[in-house]
Amino acid sequence: MNLIHRKLCRSDTWVTNVRETLMPWTLEGIDLGDDVLEIGPGFGATTRVLIDKVPNLTAVEVDPASVRLLTEQFPSVNVIEGDGAKLPLPDNSFSAVTCFTMLHHVPSPAEQDRLFAETFRVLKPQGLFVGLDSRPNLRFRFIHLFDTMIVVDPDTLPQRLAAVGFRDIDITKTETRFRFRARKP
Rank of each mutant, 00 (worst) to 15 (best):
P24G: 03
R68S: 08
W25I: 06
N2T: 06
C9V: 03
L89E: 05
F140H: 12
L123E: 11
N78E: 08
E61I: 03
M1Y: 08
L161M: 15
F180Q: 03
V62A: 11
F129V: 03
R179S: 01
S76G: 01
V15H: 14
P158K: 06
P64F: 11
H144R: 07
R167L: 02
L103T: 09
L37V: 12
V164Y: 08
T46P: 02
D83L: 00
N92G: 06
D35T: 09
T16K: 15
F116K: 07
G84N: 00
L103Y: 07
V97C: 04
L69G: 07
D155E: 08
H104T: 00
L57C: 12
S76T: 12
G42F: 15
Q73S: 10
D153E: 01
C9I: 02
K124G: 04
V15L: 06
H144N: 08
T26C: 12
R139E: 07
V79M: 09
G165F: 13
F140E: 11
T46G: 07
R121I: 02
L157F: 15
F94Y: 15
D34C: 10
E28N: 14
R181W: 06
I4H: 15
W14T: 05
I171T: 03
T13W: 14
R121G: 01
L50D: 05
I39Y: 06
T101I: 08
V67A: 01
